[in-house]
Write a protein that binds this DNA or RNA. Sequence first.
DNA 1: CTACAATCTGACCAACTGGTCAGCCCTTGA
DNA 2: TCAAGGGCTGACCAGTTGGTCAGATTGTAG
Lengths: 227, 227
Amino acid sequence: MPADPPSSLYAEVRRSRSAEFSAAPASSPREQAESRILEAAECVFACHGYRGSTLKQIADVAELPKANLLYYFGSKEKLYVHLLEQTLTRWNASLEDISPEDEPRDVLEALVRTKLKLARQAPQASRLFAAEVISGAPFLREYLSGALRDWVQVRCDVMKAWMVAGKLREAEPMWVIYLIWSTTQHYADFAAQIDYLGGAPQTDEDWERLADFVSSTLCDGLCPRQA
Amino acid sequence: MPADPPSSLYAEVRRSRSAEFSAAPASSPREQAESRILEAAECVFACHGYRGSTLKQIADVAELPKANLLYYFGSKEKLYVHLLEQTLTRWNASLEDISPEDEPRDVLEALVRTKLKLARQAPQASRLFAAEVISGAPFLREYLSGALRDWVQVRCDVMKAWMVAGKLREAEPMWVIYLIWSTTQHYADFAAQIDYLGGAPQTDEDWERLADFVSSTLCDGLCPRQA
DNA sequence: CTACAATCTGACCAACTGGTCAGCCCTTGA
DNA sequence: TCAAGGGCTGACCAGTTGGTCAGATTGTAG
């Protein structure tokens, strides 16, 4: 009975047009069309996953004929993969380095704030990623067991050093990472639920307070009191 | 290029057949067929969401002709809604009560353990729910803004009392709930990612240690030290 | 203006979608 | 033994799917 998801979800396309990420001037018709298509596709894929999305629907959101998408991207799969790669590239760009000399609290807090900023700025990308993982990550196998695994390994090693030094609660380091990822991504992936239940951060101030809450709660939970 | 998600995902149907939840004797042909269909449908819907799933695929997993599903459930939508309602009913059954007199640490820990048990026993149900929410919760509007909202309100009131009594960190109570939900559901919803990256709990002992870690970390972070 | 390539798209296609239905099975109770 | 009704399904249908393609339109360099 419910029609499509609230069309307001798709409205995010329009809201975000020429905002946030799309800092490119995009002059040539190719660039214009491509970014227009990518925005629409991110919207639809994030909402319905790869298999649940149709080119027709993406075309409608982009306000372009379906054949145009295929002219620029060749196939549904290529469009989807392009979008995934674009997302991973952007995420990578916002990741800080880490070293055993750093203070755990500082690093954890920075990580939480970065992830929350992404959840706010690019919720579609987060949902796209989530939908892909829920469906078994058929297009992300390589990335997950390659680049991301390496990134994670470095963090785990540092965290193990912290644990030895008594600066971090003893535990499987991956679980610490999952604690941070899950608590922050939640605000992008489950935005619909949060909208219905309440507690959705709206203003800059809200997001600031949320970041304070999450980071200090996790830090206090993870870093032994310095008493 | 990647085919369907790892068929091992669908294999969960077989693994879980006559396990966990399906405690029913299920004698009549109707009951047998229905539970068989529901198991297969949960599997497929959890993986691809409502729109990404097809009756043909569900029928194949259930090893029944497609027309049979329609004979028992009438339509794709009715089957999906039936599944959602079944999930919510089961979740409701495992929720404990709460009162301002309880110790926050005990209640939080119990909540974490319950949610983690669900994430382990019924990961498909969790993913089904997650996919539905990601897509904008078109079939869950009523539940989210009705029954679940009430459930949540009660917890929020108790938590506010705890905060006044200095037993719980001052914050938007909803954020506390989201902290618990997100950290626990993560192990069901993002199981594919966890399988590739490592840190997946396997044995009973692993799950016990994970529950200890999550609950004590959150408790230490949320409940002011009693010094 | 011309020529050549890039851009664009309506019309089309085979495969698949959810759903219907006539009619076949098989049990069960009298 | 037999009728009746639930259980079951192959064949079919209209609408949609991702994708192709011939050709129209546009931009642009000479």
